[in-house]
Protein backbone atom coordinates (compact mmCIF):
# COMPACT_ATOMS: atom_id res chain seq x y z
CA UNK A 1 0.00 0.00 0.00
CA UNK A 2 2.46 2.59 1.22
CA UNK A 3 4.70 1.89 -1.77
CA UNK A 4 2.12 3.51 -4.05
CA UNK A 5 1.60 6.72 -2.11
CA UNK A 6 4.72 8.56 -3.22
CA UNK A 7 4.61 7.65 -6.93
CA UNK A 8 0.94 8.66 -7.05
CA UNK A 9 1.73 11.95 -5.34
CA UNK A 10 4.50 12.60 -7.87
CA UNK A 11 2.27 11.83 -10.83
CA UNK A 12 -0.39 14.10 -9.39
CA UNK A 13 2.15 16.86 -8.90
CA UNK A 14 3.50 16.62 -12.45
CA UNK A 15 0.00 16.67 -13.92
CA UNK A 16 -0.90 19.66 -11.76
CA UNK A 17 2.25 21.44 -12.90
CA UNK A 18 1.37 20.73 -16.53
CA UNK A 19 -2.11 22.20 -16.06
CA UNK A 20 -0.58 25.28 -14.45
CA UNK A 21 1.86 25.45 -17.40
CA UNK A 22 4.96 25.18 -15.22
CA UNK A 23 8.20 23.91 -16.77
CA UNK A 24 8.78 20.79 -14.66
CA UNK A 25 12.30 20.14 -15.90
CA UNK A 26 13.57 23.68 -15.46
CA UNK A 27 12.06 24.01 -12.00
CA UNK A 28 13.43 20.64 -10.91
CA UNK A 29 16.95 21.55 -12.07
CA UNK A 30 16.73 24.89 -10.35
CA UNK A 31 15.70 23.27 -7.08
CA UNK A 32 18.16 20.40 -7.26
CA UNK A 33 21.00 22.89 -7.72
CA UNK A 34 20.40 24.17 -4.18
CA UNK A 35 21.19 20.80 -2.63
CA UNK A 36 24.99 21.00 -2.92
CA UNK A 37 25.43 24.36 -1.16
CA UNK A 38 22.96 23.21 1.51
CA UNK A 39 24.91 20.02 2.23
CA UNK A 40 28.22 21.91 2.19
CA UNK A 41 26.75 24.32 4.75
CA UNK A 42 25.50 21.64 7.12
CA UNK A 43 28.36 19.14 6.74
CA UNK A 44 30.56 20.61 9.50
CA UNK A 45 27.64 20.41 11.95
CA UNK A 46 26.85 16.81 11.01
CA UNK A 47 30.52 15.87 11.32
CA UNK A 48 30.92 17.52 14.74
CA UNK A 49 27.84 15.93 16.27
CA UNK A 50 28.75 12.51 14.89
CA UNK A 51 32.32 12.75 16.22
CA UNK A 52 31.00 13.76 19.63
CA UNK A 53 28.59 10.82 19.69
CA UNK A 54 31.27 8.37 18.55
CA UNK A 55 33.58 9.55 21.34
CA UNK A 56 30.82 9.20 23.93
CA UNK A 57 30.11 5.65 22.82
CA UNK A 58 33.74 4.59 22.47
CA UNK A 59 34.59 5.84 25.94
CA UNK A 60 31.89 3.66 27.44
CA UNK A 61 30.15 6.61 29.08
CA UNK A 62 26.85 5.74 27.41
CA UNK A 63 27.07 2.16 28.70
CA UNK A 64 27.79 3.52 32.19
CA UNK A 65 24.79 5.83 31.93
CA UNK A 66 22.61 2.94 30.77
CA UNK A 67 23.65 0.94 33.83
CA UNK A 68 23.03 3.73 36.28
CA UNK A 69 19.67 4.65 34.78
CA UNK A 70 18.34 1.12 34.50
CA UNK A 71 16.40 1.10 37.83
CA UNK A 72 14.55 4.28 36.76
CA UNK A 73 13.66 2.82 33.37
CA UNK A 74 12.48 -0.42 34.91
CA UNK A 75 10.27 1.53 37.32
CA UNK A 76 8.77 3.35 34.33
CA UNK A 77 7.87 0.06 32.65
CA UNK A 78 10.61 0.02 30.02
CA UNK A 79 12.18 -3.47 29.80
CA UNK A 80 15.91 -3.61 30.49
CA UNK A 81 16.60 -4.95 26.98
CA UNK A 82 15.43 -1.63 25.53
CA UNK A 83 17.32 0.80 27.75
CA UNK A 84 20.29 1.15 25.42
CA UNK A 85 17.94 1.80 22.51
CA UNK A 86 16.06 4.53 24.37
CA UNK A 87 19.31 6.20 25.43
CA UNK A 88 20.94 5.95 22.01
CA UNK A 89 17.95 7.10 19.98
CA UNK A 90 18.29 10.88 20.51
CA UNK A 91 21.91 10.77 19.32
CA UNK A 92 22.13 8.53 16.29
CA UNK A 93 19.65 7.40 13.65
CA UNK A 94 21.78 4.78 11.92
CA UNK A 95 23.08 3.51 15.26
CA UNK A 96 19.62 3.00 16.69
CA UNK A 97 18.38 1.26 13.54
CA UNK A 98 21.36 -1.11 13.74
CA UNK A 99 20.46 -1.78 17.35
CA UNK A 100 16.82 -2.39 16.38
CA UNK A 101 17.99 -4.98 13.89
CA UNK A 102 20.07 -6.68 16.59
CA UNK A 103 16.99 -6.79 18.82
CA UNK A 104 14.95 -8.39 16.01
CA UNK A 105 17.59 -11.03 15.46
CA UNK A 106 18.00 -11.77 19.15
CA UNK A 107 14.36 -11.87 20.26
CA UNK A 108 12.47 -12.52 17.00
CA UNK A 109 10.69 -9.80 15.04
CA UNK A 110 7.25 -10.58 16.52
CA UNK A 111 8.21 -10.70 20.20
CA UNK A 112 6.98 -8.14 22.72
CA UNK A 113 10.47 -6.65 23.05
CA UNK A 114 10.79 -6.22 19.28
CA UNK A 115 7.34 -4.68 18.93
CA UNK A 116 8.12 -2.20 21.71
CA UNK A 117 11.44 -1.36 20.10
CA UNK A 118 9.71 -0.75 16.75
CA UNK A 119 7.14 1.59 18.23
CA UNK A 120 9.78 3.46 20.25
CA UNK A 121 11.79 4.07 17.10
CA UNK A 122 8.71 4.98 15.08
CA UNK A 123 7.54 7.67 17.47
CA UNK A 124 10.89 9.33 18.17
CA UNK A 125 13.60 11.22 16.35
CA UNK A 126 17.34 11.81 16.57
CA UNK A 127 16.79 14.92 18.66
CA UNK A 128 20.37 16.17 18.89
CA UNK A 129 20.98 15.67 15.19
CA UNK A 130 17.72 17.37 14.16
CA UNK A 131 18.37 20.29 16.49
CA UNK A 132 21.97 20.76 15.32
CA UNK A 133 21.07 20.66 11.64
CA UNK A 134 17.98 22.85 11.94
CA UNK A 135 19.67 25.71 13.77
CA UNK A 136 22.95 25.39 11.83
CA UNK A 137 21.97 28.13 9.38
CA UNK A 138 20.70 30.59 11.98
CA UNK A 139 22.39 32.76 14.57
CA UNK A 140 20.65 30.96 17.43
CA UNK A 141 23.03 30.02 20.25
CA UNK A 142 20.68 29.65 23.21
CA UNK A 143 17.98 27.03 22.75
CA UNK A 144 16.32 27.58 26.14
CA UNK A 145 13.92 24.70 26.81
CA UNK A 146 13.77 23.14 23.31
CA UNK A 147 16.01 20.10 23.91
CA UNK A 148 14.76 19.19 27.42
CA UNK A 149 11.15 19.33 26.24
CA UNK A 150 11.95 17.12 23.25
CA UNK A 151 13.82 14.63 25.46
CA UNK A 152 10.98 14.43 27.98
CA UNK A 153 8.50 13.83 25.17
CA UNK A 154 10.54 11.05 23.70
CA UNK A 155 10.99 9.36 27.10
CA UNK A 156 7.25 9.52 27.69
CA UNK A 157 6.78 8.22 24.13
CA UNK A 158 8.88 5.18 25.07
CA UNK A 159 6.77 4.56 28.17
CA UNK A 160 3.55 4.87 26.15
CA UNK A 161 5.00 2.56 23.49
CA UNK A 162 5.69 -0.20 26.02
CA UNK A 163 2.19 0.22 27.48
CA UNK A 164 0.46 0.16 24.09
CA UNK A 165 2.32 -2.94 22.95
CA UNK A 166 0.98 -4.78 25.95
CA UNK A 167 -2.61 -3.92 25.00
CA UNK A 168 -2.61 -3.95 21.20
Amino acid sequence: MSAYILPLLFIGLFCYAKIKKVGCYDSFVKGAKKSIPLVVDIFPYIASIMIAVALLRASGITALLADSFSPIFLALGIPSELIELVLLRPFTGSGSFALLNDIYLQYGADSYISRCASVILGCSETIFYVTTVYISQTKVKKLLYAVPVALICSLIGAIIACLLCRII
Partner: peptide
Amino acid sequence: YAVWLGILEIVEVSG
Protein backbone atom coordinates in the same frame (compact mmCIF):
# COMPACT_ATOMS: atom_id res chain seq x y z
CA TYR B 1 18.02 16.75 -1.06
CA ALA B 2 18.62 17.11 -4.81
CA VAL B 3 15.50 15.05 -5.48
CA TRP B 4 13.39 16.74 -2.83
CA LEU B 5 14.51 20.29 -3.49
CA GLY B 6 13.77 19.66 -7.17
CA ILE B 7 10.29 18.44 -6.34
CA LEU B 8 9.88 21.29 -3.88
CA GLU B 9 10.68 23.83 -6.57
CA ILE B 10 7.92 22.42 -8.78
CA VAL B 11 5.53 22.45 -5.82
CA GLU B 12 6.39 26.07 -5.21
CA VAL B 13 6.34 27.35 -8.79
CA SER B 14 3.05 25.61 -9.54
CA GLY B 15 1.48 27.38 -6.56
